[in-house]
Amino acid sequence: MTAKTTYRIFPLGDSAITADWGNCISEPVNREVLARFRQLSEVPLPGMTEVVSAYSSLTIYYDVLALRKRIAPGTTVYDHMRQLLEERLQQPVSADAVQGRLVRIPVCYEKPFATDLLSLALAKHISAEELVHIHTASIYRVYMLGFLPGFTYMGEVDERIAMARKPVPETVMPGSVGIAGRQTGVYPLVSPGGWHIIGRTPLALFSPEREEPALLAAGDQVQFYSISRHEFENY
C-alpha cells in the first residue's frame, strides 16, 4: 500500500534538494518518508552523495561538479536533480514493509539523574511515579536522528507528561532521557539542551568506536523500562 503522496520539492541551497510531505509529525507520513529513504539508499540517484530522512521530509545532497558534466549548458543541476527525484517519487514504495526493531532501553528515573522529573510532575499535577509509569507504558517511534550524532527524536509521549522545552538550555549529560513537547529522546553526548530531563540510561546511544556508532535508527520502536540506581551503577 502506498500512502497518499502529496509533497513539495524545493532546493536546499545549491547542493541539496528536499522533498517535503507536509511539515508535520505523523507516523504514516514518516513511514512513507522512510520507505523512500530506504529505496533511495539502495538505488541512489546518479550524482547523489547522501540522503537524509527527517520527520516529514527527505533531503538529497549531490555533487554539483560531477553532475555538471551530464547536463546541457545553461541548464541547472538543480533542475536535473528535481526531474530525477520527481520520476523516482512517482514509483510506488511499500511503506508497510518498513519494520523497525523493537529496542528496550533501561532508564534510572532517580536522583541525581532525573533533574527535572519532580518539577515536570508538579507542573503536570501528577506524581513522579505516575510520570515514570506513563513514560514507560508506551512504545515510541524513532522518527529521525539529528541535532547531535546519535540523537533520536521519538514520539509521541502522552499529553499528561508533555511539556514545552525549557526557555534556557542547561548542560545535559550523556544518556539523559528528556521530554520536549510530545517528543522524547536521549542525549548521546554532553551538550547544552532544553529538554526536561527525567532520567538516564546506562546504554551508550552513540559510540564512535562501534561499527554502528548510533544505537538507534529512524523507524525503530523504543520502549523504556525503569531500573534502580543500583542496577544503573552495575549495568
Binding site: 541551497g13 547542493s15 520527520y55 527524536y153
Partner: peptide, 13 residues
Amino acid sequence: HEEVVSSAVDFGT
C-alpha cells in the same frame, strides 16, 4: 509564526 518541524540543513543555511 508557523512552526517548522526539524528537517535537514546544510553548510551555508
